[in-house]
């Protein structure tokens, strides 16, 4: 069965599962777009600065779409959902909230480009598989949005794949740095696949395909690339820092929320 917004508003169980999924999607894109915006002006070269910024803007745009759907479902204003929820209410995967590297974007930002490439590449691939599945979602507005989002993801994925293969293929220090970055990303990668406690509900209500299918599809997509570059994919990933879908988060998110709400909090009733 397919649901319109009006129908979703009537069915309590459907409404609650749908909102849970939308929060996961929105919070993932929102926090990673934020991390991308911290990179502005600091990327390895000017051309990349421009390209990376486009991708971050697209991601922020996707977050706006998802928060907008939550607003339509009566959860609250999109702006407040993005800015006014404490860390424990956030549903993003922990991997995506992690800092870009030592320092802050204002002071001594010794950011790690290898980490940016690996995190962005892996996240984008997984997101693309989720979005492809969402094209068949039972929630009509979400399936329609997925069609548009998927077109943009084609370019994001191509971009990060190009970086990943070039840096690994170059060997030497670059290869070592990418391998180190993968060693930092894999132990938390399960958090990106996870749908948290709502996983069975998502499938029963035909909102999205299962975590397991998404994982298998991603491994299938990545395996030939790993093989061609002569690197191994671990047999299992991890959820070492905890599951963000359950509201478990790190100091990194707390600090990010403080920064990204600094002006918003001066006066929440004011129009900015």
């Amino acid at each position: 069965m397919k649901y319109t917004k009006e129908e979703a508003l009537i069915h309590k169980e459907y409404h609650s599962a749908l909102c849970e999924l939308l929060f996961q999607l929105a919070d993932d894109d929102f926090i990673l777009a934020y991390r991308g915006s911290e990179w502005l002006g600091l990327a390895p070269h000017i051309e990349e600065d421009v390209a990376f910024s486009s991708i971050s803007q697209d991601m922020m745009g996707h977050a706006v779409i998802f928060y907008g759907m939550l607003e339509d479902l009566g959860i609250g204003k999109a702006n407040d959902l993005a800015h006014d929820r404490p860390a424990e209410e956030r549903k993003n995967a922990i991997l995506l909230e992690r800092v870009n590297g030592p320092g802050t974007y204002l002071h001594e930002p010794h950011y790690d480009w290898a980490f940016a490439v690996v995190r962005s590449y892996f996240y984008t691939g997984i997101k693309k598989i989720k979005i492809a599945s969402l094209k068949n979602s039972s929630y009509i507005p979400l399936s329609q949005a997925a069609v548009k989002i998927e077109m943009e993801l084609y370019y994001h994925l191509l971009h990060w794949k190009t970086w990943f293969t070039q840096l690994l293929g170059a060997g030497g220090e670059a290869k070592k740095r990418i391998e180190d970055a993968m060693a930092a990303v894999f132990p938390d990668l399960d958090g990106v696949f996870s749908f948290g406690a709502a996983r069975t509900m998502f499938i029963r209500l035909a909102l999205i395909t299962s975590e397991e299918e998404i994982r298998q599809e991603w491994i299938q997509m990545m395996r030939p690339i790993f093989e061609s570059l002569g690197i191994n994919m671990p047999n299992s990933f991890g959820l070492e820092s905890g599951n963000g879908r359950d509201g478990v988060h790190t100091e990194d998110l707390e600090a990010a929320l403080k920064t990204l709400t600094e002006v918003y909090r001066i006066d929440q009733t004011a129009s900015w």
């Binding site: 915006s37 502005l40 421009v50 928060y67």
Partner: peptide, 20 residues
């Protein structure tokens, strides 16, 4: 990163990107 709304965040990201 501190822009006070989603709309402003999107706009100022695009603006600074233009400068680059």
């Amino acid at each position: 990163p501190k822009a006070p709304s989603l709309k402003r965040k999107l706009a100022i990201m695009a603006k600074v990107q233009d400068e680059m």
